[in-house]
């Protein structure tokens, strides 16, 4: 594990094993807020921020839990940290940009239940990453999430002008596009070897 360079961890988390398109983490916001380019990129930034903070906290908590020998508390303590970070981000956004706050709507508090964030915390623990590696991993995961969200938003903005059959409208066509995007991202798998 140790010989992996930080750069490789970053590329791995963002492109090769993209969180949305290869691990299926964070599908709800991926389908929910990818309608408009602007909201999508800001949502991506908010998620990345929460990811980095909670990943650092998760690293500390893991050390503590190992020290007091209570691994069964892992899940509960991680989720508490994530929930409070989201609360913080929510307050910051509400103060700085009320318009953005409204456009993100229900999806902002729902970052708490974004599996991608808990996923980062759990994966970095099971992979035994150190602090620097955890940072690279969470930053890569956030970048990958933002990339997928922005790509999707671009495609869906174009889709508004297309003549889509009535049966496929809505979630079905979005999922089909996501499938094709996921196929394209498989092309990156050669980067790892």
């Amino acid at each position: 594990m140790k010989e992996e360079s930080l750069w490789f961890i970053f590329i791995n988390a963002s492109l090769i094993n993209n969180f949305v398109l290869a691990y299926f983490l964070g599908i709800c916001p991926f389908l929910g807020v990818s309608g408009k380019m602007e909201t999508a990129s800001k949502m991506g930034a908010a998620v990345t921020f929460v990811m980095i903070i909670s990943s650092v906290c998760a690293y500390g908590i893991h050390l503590l839990l190992v020290a007091i020998n209570a691994p069964f508390l892992q899940l509960i303590s991680y989720i508490v940290v994530i929930a409070s970070t989201v609360q913080l981000v929510e307050m910051i956004i509400k103060k700085m940009s009320p318009a953005l706050f409204r456009s993100l709507g229900i999806f902002l508090p729902l970052i708490t239940t974004n599996c991608a964030i808990l996923g980062v915390a759990l994966f970095q623990t099971s992979k035994g990453y150190g602090l620097a590696e955890s940072l690279a991993y969470s930053f890569g995961a956030g970048a990958g999430f933002t990339l997928a969200l922005v790509l999707m938003a671009g495609l869906r903005e174009q889709l508004d002008f297309a003549d889509v059959p009535k049966v496929v409208k809505g979630t079905a066509i979005t999922l089909l596009i996501a499938g094709i995007l996921s196929l394209t991202f498989m092309g990156f798998s050669g980067l790892g070897s």
Binding site: L21, A22, Y23, F24, V167, V168, K169, G170, T171, A172, I173, L175, L176, A178, G179, I180, S182, L183, M186
Partner: peptide, 19 residues
Amino acid sequence: ILPAGGFFTLAFWLLIFNH
């Protein structure tokens, strides 16, 4: 079996439901 298949299968089931 690959990730893309998951998206396609779900889209396919949703299509049937929509129909």
